[in-house]
Amino acid sequence: MPYALFCHDAQISKAYPSEADVWQLAQQSGLVVDVSTDDQRHGPRRVLDNDYEIKPCRAAQGEDPARNKAEAEQQSRMELALNS
């Protein structure tokens, strides 16, 4: 089942093959923050900023989550090359 980024129950990203793929996209977009731990956890934990959530979703008609992932990875590599 594909996953996407949501805000207030509205899907705001393309569908991606796994939840981990959406976490990576959110991290690159600056939407992931580290929060302090509670007594039961060691070290900081990652959470999504504001009201963002990662949820399972259906891919839109004609949408290919694997292609979305490949395009996002290619764009990330191009941005790294431009910034170096």
Rank of each mutant, 00 (worst) to 15 (best):
H42F: 09
L5V: 03
L48Y: 04
I12D: 10
A70R: 13
L5M: 04
R77M: 05
P44Y: 05
F6I: 00
T37K: 13
Q61Y: 11
Q75K: 11
I54G: 01
D49Q: 15
V47P: 01
F6G: 01
A66C: 06
A66T: 08
E71G: 01
S13Q: 05
D51C: 13
L5S: 01
Q11D: 02
I12Y: 08
L82W: 08
L80P: 00
H8G: 01
L80T: 06
E71C: 09
V32R: 01
Q27Y: 11
L48A: 03
P56I: 08
Y52V: 02
Q61R: 15
Q75C: 01
K14H: 11
L25H: 06
L80N: 14
R67W: 07
H42S: 10
L82M: 14
Y16A: 02
Q11S: 01
D9E: 12
N50D: 15
H8D: 14
A60F: 10
E19Y: 07
L82T: 04
S18A: 12
D39R: 13
S36M: 11
S18H: 14
C7Q: 14
T37G: 15
Q27T: 09
D34S: 06
L5W: 02
G43M: 07
T37I: 02
A26S: 11
D9S: 09
K69T: 04
R41H: 14
D38K: 10
R67Q: 15
V33A: 09
A59M: 10
V47Q: 13
A4G: 14
V22R: 03
A10E: 14
H8A: 06
L48P: 03
F6Y: 15
P17S: 11
Y16L: 09
S36N: 14
I54H: 03
K14R: 14
Q24H: 11
Q40H: 12
R67K: 13
N50T: 06
L82Y: 10
G30L: 00
D51N: 12
R67V: 13
P2V: 10
S36D: 14
Y52K: 04
V47M: 09
D9N: 08
Q28M: 03
L80V: 04
Y3F: 15
Q11A: 10
Q28F: 01
S36Q: 13
D64F: 09
D9H: 06
